[in-house]
Structure formats: C-alpha cells, structure tokens
Nucleic acid binder design. Structure first.
Lengths: 144, 144
DNA sequence: TTGGGTGCAAACTATTTGCATTCGA
DNA sequence: TCGAATGCAAATAGTTTGCACCCAA
C-alpha cells in the first residue's frame, strides 16, 4: 500500500505536485528528501534519510534533513513514530494505523487499523480532546 | 494507589528492604532516588528526579541518576514510558497500564488496564513474541 | 590484595538554533 | 529583486561511557 498520491517510485514531477498540494515550496533538497521518503511505505530515522539522500552526491546537510522532515510532518505528508527513546522514526504511511516494534532489530511494522480494535476507551481528562490513539506492540525474537 | 510495597511516604527502612528484595545493593544515592521516585504513583523525567533529589543537598550526580533509573527499570522497580521524543519518563506504577499524554503540558495520566480493552490484536511477525502492548492516547486542551 | 560494584566528569549523539549565503518566484 | 530556504557551526539537552575509587572476600 503506497502513499495515497503515488503508484510507484516517485517521479520528480509527482513529488513536486505533492509538495505543492501540501503548501510546501518544492526546492531541490526537499524534492530529494521527498523522493527518498515517499517512494514507498517505510519507517526511516532522520539519519537514514540523510544517508540515502547523500548516498551518491553530497547535497543536503544534516540540519536541512531534520528541518525538512519536521516540516513534512507539520504539513501532514508524513508522521512521526515515537517508540524508541534514542531516535524518532518517520513514517510515509499517513493513514491511521499502529505498529509492531521489534526491540531487537529496531524495525517497525504497520498494523492496519482494521486489524486492531480498541474497546472501552475511557473519556479524556476534563477540557481535553483526543488527538490520536496509538498502539505499540513491542516484540522480540522468541529465542532471546 | 501506591507502589505495591508502600503504604505512605517511604521510610528509609522500607526503601532499603524494597531495593534488597529486587537484588539492588542499597547505597546512599540509590536510597535517595528510590525515596523520591517511589513515594507515590508518578511520572518523572530523569531531570525531574535529579532536581528533587538535589533540592536541598547536592549529593547525587546526573550520571548516577540516569544509571540508577536504568537499573531500577531493569530490575522491575519502575517502568520507562516513551511518549515524547525529547525525554524518557519513569513510572512508579509497575502494574500493566496505559497512558493519556497531554501534549500541551507534557503530563501523563494512567489508564488502568480494566478501563481499556484491545480486541483483535493480530499475531506478531513470525518467530517473534509479544513483550508488551502499550496504548498512548495523546490529548490536548480543547481550546488549542 | 583484588575484582566487581559504584559514582561522577567527560564524552557522545540526536536534534535545534542563529545567522550569513543562496535560491526561486 | 527580495523574502524564503539552505547550510554550516555551534549550541543544546538527554544520555552513555571510561575510569578512579571503594569495599567485601
């Protein structure tokens, strides 16, 4: 299941359209980062994005990667996943869903919403509204 | 609801017994940290523990606070709560439960297990076993 | 004496910030 | 042109590590 706006490895033109639609000025660096991040459903850390974008050339600085991923998140292009205290993951699947987190390998797997139901969610504290409900299922290898 | 082993603000003697029972050598610093952390059900960051322990005296270093909280977690005296990319919270409630996380104030509130049921949890990936299932309900003030 | 346990300063890592430079409309 | 975007360096904050010291066997 790919990003709503994509059907295969993102062409530059598709990426430019998508950024524009989300109110993001499509610059050279942002296009490179978006192509890497949105080409398929995946969970990448900022550092992984940095490495992939700069695998051949060396055109995007670390600060720009961080700032750009933050911008994409704010604009709703991607989502942050907080499961590990040591780093943030960015998820190109923006549909509401949950995660298996493999604590041995550090890898994430989606749990589609229709495969996990929450019954009896209590009311939030007074004067608060629910922003989202996230389920993290931490797994480890049976051996360990 | 207090820590299983406590009925009120922890006395030094109670803390020493609890540490010993969990296989932790009760040193001066560990006792101070345990008294602060375990006196009631609460969610504190390492930094908050540091400040409280050293509020009057200045006897425990930052590294020792981190190492000690890590040790307590490993020995099952407290639990880590990962809801915010900027810091880890430590929870003196070791029973299985979930959390409301107020993204405005950064405060956590327990959701007791019996108030939240999960239906249809899918099987974990092959050769993996479930370590825990954690639900985070992020809330914000209705106004914002 | 000696070896693991303890505590802390310093190191490390992820992330953010400030500002001079460059780019895109 | 000119404000927005970028890149870099340095700052920051949370956390981890390396090593001196201590204590029980």
């Amino acid at each position: 299941m790919l990003h709503p706006a994509f059907s295969d490895k993102s062409s530059r033109k598709e990426v430019v359209r998508l950024l524009t639609e989300h109110g993001i000025t499509p610059t050279q660096q942002r296009i490179l980062i978006a192509q890497e991040m949105l080409s398929k459903h995946q969970h990448l850390s900022a550092d992984q994005v940095m490495q992939r974008v700069n695998a051949h050339s060396n055109t995007v600085s670390k600060a720009t990667v961080y700032n750009t991923l933050g911008l994409f998140t704010e604009k709703g292009l991607i989502k942050e996943v907080i499961v590990d205290s040591s780093k943030v993951f960015y998820d190109s699947n923006t549909r509401h869903h949950h995660h298996f987190y493999n604590v041995d390998s550090g890898s994430l797997h989606d749990i589609e919403c229709e495969h996990l139901a929450i019954a009896r969610l209590p009311d939030p504290p007074a004067a608060m509204k629910i922003k989202n409900v996230e389920v993290i299922v931490r797994v480890s290898s049976k051996a360990s």
